[in-house]
Nucleic acid binder design. Structure first.
Lengths: 332, 332
DNA sequence: CTGAAAGCGCTAACAC
DNA sequence: GTGTTAGCGCTTTCAG
C-alpha cells in the first residue's frame, strides 16, 4: 500500500506538503506540486479512507440497509429509492438477510459495529427488542411496522385501507363469496391486510373467510386448488400479494373456471411487470415503494443531522384495476 | 462519540485493558472485565471502524459490487450470489448505477477511494479504460465481457451458444421464418446472442433477420407490432431477453395469431417468475445467475488472497422448453 | 494482570 | 512555501 510517506520520501518533500498538494489546499510551488502529482501517479497512490476519517473533518456518512430478499423487485425498488436519495456521497451498505431472522439480527449488529450512522430495516418481522437496542446508539427507520421508540421512525403503507379498497371493489363488481388468501400471522402487514378485508366484507354484510397461505406463487396455487376441489363456494379472491394471486389464478384456470367471469381476483403490491404480463392482467393494490425508499433515506439523513420533523409516514395505497376483476357474469 | 478512553476513565483502568476486554484478548481479572463491560454498555459504546482498520491486523475486507439496475431480478440474483459467498465477514458495498455510465464511473472510482479491496462489475458496457485503470490498484471481476488484463477476471455466459440452442430448437419444431429481436450493438451480450442466432439459421440454410429492439417489454411489443403489420413473414421469434419476448407475445396475441401454433417464441434469461406466469408460458435460455454471482465472489476473494487459479469462467446456458415453442401446426 | 507507549495514514495548526 | 508536530481511536507489543 502506497502512503503519503512513500510519496514524500521519493519526491524529497514532507508528508504535509504532499497532503496539501493532493488535497489542493495551502500553497505549494508549482515545481514541487507537479513532481508530487507525478510520483503519486506512478506509485498508484490511493488515499486511505479510514485514515482520512480518523483525522478531523471529512467523515463519510454510512447508512445500513437491511432487506429480506434482494431478488424480489419490491425490495429492489426500495433499495433504489434509498440509493437515489443518498447519491454518491453517502455510503449505503445493503445487506440481504435471505429472509433469515438470525442472519438479519447478526447483520444489523454488524452494521452497528461497523460504525453505520443509521440503519434502515425493510422487514417488518424484525425483532422489536433489537430495534430498541440498536436505536439507543443510532437512528433506525423501519418499514411497515409501528414503533413508539425514540430515535425510530416508521414508514408504513396503509395496508388495511388498501385491502379494504380491493375487497370493496370486488364486491361492487358483483362478487359476493370473496375469500382472502393471507400471509402468516407474525407479519404486521398480513394482519393489517386481513383487517381491511374483513372490514369491507362486514360493511357489506358478508362473512369473511380467511386462509393463511404464505407469500409465493406455489403456495397460492396449492391452496386455491385445494379450496376449489373441496367445493367451497368462491367467486372472488383477494390475495395478500401478487404472487399468491397469480398462483391462485393458475389453479382457477386449471379448474376450468373463467377469470373474471366466474371468479374475480385482486392482488397486492402491484408489481407491474407481473400484473401486466399475466393474462388476464391482474388488478392489484399499488404501493409507492420507490418513493417510500426515498423517504426512508431522507428521514434517515434528517435524523442523523438532528433535523427530524415527522416521526411517522403513512403512505396511501391506490387500487389499479385491470382485467382480473372485470366483473362477474351473472347466469340468468 | 464514546471512545475507549472514556470507558477507561470512568472504569478507572487503562485504554489497553478496555481494548483487551472488548476484544476478548489477553487476560484480565474477572472483576475489571465485568465492570468495563458494564460501563461500555451504559455509555453506549460503539467501536470506530475506521480507527480499528487503521491499526495493524484486523482490517475488514471490503468488496464493491456495481450493477446497472437493482430493481431487475436478474441483478438481484447476482447480488444475492455475491452476498451468499461473502457471508457476514466481508463487507459488500452494492451500488446501483441506474444504468447511467457516468454515475457508474464515478461510483467505481469512489469505491476505489473508499478502500475497497476489489470490485465486481455487473455491467458489460463498462468503460474498458476504467477497468484497466482500476485494476492497477485492486482486482476486478467483470461479467459478460472478455478481458486480457492482469488482475481482471471475466465471468461470462456462453451467450452465443445459448442463442444457438434456442434458434435451433425453434427450427426443429418446424418454424422456418425465425427472426431475432436483438439488443443494441454496444452490448457484448447482444452481439454474442446475435452471432449464435445467425449461426443456427445458416446451419439450416435459412437466412437470418435481425431487428435491434432494446431491453424492455414495451420495445418488444412495438417492434413486433410493426413487423406484423408490415406483412413480414414470421413464424418464429428468438428474443434477446424475456421481457422483449413477452412484449412480442402481447403484440402477436393482439394481432390474432396463436402461440405456439402460428408463431413460436423463445426468450433469454429464464426469469422463472415471468416465464411461468406468462400464458402460454415462455421457453427461455437459462443462465445460472446466482451461481455466477457466487463464483464472482469466490474469485474475488481468491484474487485478494493471491490464490487465484482460473482466469476466465465460461458458464454454460441451458434451454428451458415451455409452451411458447410447442411446435408449429402445419395447415394441410 | 495491567498500563505506558508506539504506530496505523492522514490532516491541520503552527513554526520556520 | 515548507516542514514539524500533535492528534484522530484503536490495537499491540513490552515492561512492570
Amino acid at each position: 500500500m502506497v502512503t503519503l510517506k512513500d510519496i514524500a520520501r521519493i519526491a524529497n518533500v514532507s508528508v504535509s506538503t504532499v497532503s496539501k498538494v493532493l488535497n489542493g489546499k495551502g500553497r505549494v510551488s508549482e515545481k514541487k506540486r507537479r513532481e508530487i502529482l507525478q510520483v503519486a501517479k506512478e506509485l498508484g497512490y490511493v488515499p486511505n479512507l479510514h485514515a482520512r476519517n480518523m483525522s478531523k473533518k471529512v467523515r463519510i456518512l454510512t447508512i445500513g440497509l437491511v432487506i429480506p430478499d434482494i431478488t424480489n423487485p419490491f425490495f429492489g425498488k426500495l433499495t433504489r429509492g434509498v440509493q437515489k436519495v443518498c447519491g454518491e456521497d453517502v455510503l449505503v451498505i445493503t445487506v440481504d438477510s435471505f429472509r433469515d431472522l438470525d442472519r438479519e439480527e447478526r447483520v444489523i449488529r454488524k452494521l452497528l459495529f461497523l460504525g453505520a450512522h443509521g440503519i434502515i430495516i425493510g422487514n417488518s418481522r424484525v425483532n422489536d427488542e433489537l430495534v430498541k437496542e440498536v436505536s439507543r446508539y443510532i437512528p433506525v427507520v423501519v418499514f411497515d411496522k409501528d414503533y413508539e421508540y425514540e430515535n425510530v421512525v416508521s414508514i408504513v403503507l396503509d395496508n388495511s385501507y388498501g385491502a379494504y379498497l380491493a375487497t370493496k371493489h370486488l364486491i361492487e363488481r358483483g362478487y359476493r363469496n370473496v375469500i382472502h388468501l393471507g400471509g402468516t400471522h407474525e407479519l404486521y402487514v398480513s394482519l393489517k391486510r386481513r383487517e381491511g378485508y374483513e372490514a369491507a366484507m362486514r360493511e357489506k354484510g358478508l362473512s369473511p373467510r380467511v386462509y393463511p397461505v404464505g407469500y409465493d406463487e406455489e403456495k397460492g396455487y396449492k391452496m386455491m386448488r385445494k379450496l376449489l376441489k373441496s367445493g367451497e363456494e368462491i367467486d372472488g379472491v383477494f390475495s395478500m400479494n401478487d404472487l399468491v394471486a397469480l398462483g391462485a389464478m393458475r389453479a382457477i384456470r386449471e379448474f376450468g373456471k373463467k377469470i373474471p367471469e366466474d371468479i374475480g381476483v385482486v392482488g397486492f403490491d402491484n408489481d407491474e411487470e407481473l400484473c401486466e404480463i399475466a393474462s388476464p392482467s391482474l388488478s392489484s393494490v399499488h404501493q409507492p415503494v420507490e418513493e417510500m425508499g426515498e423517504t426512508a433515506a431522507k428521514v434517515m439523513l434528517d435524523m442523523i443531522n438532528g433535523t427530524l420533523k415527522v416521526r411517522k409516514y403513512i403512505f396511501s395505497p391506490r387500487l389499479v384495476v385491470r382485467e382480473s376483476s372485470g366483473g362477474k357474469k351473472v347466469n340468468l
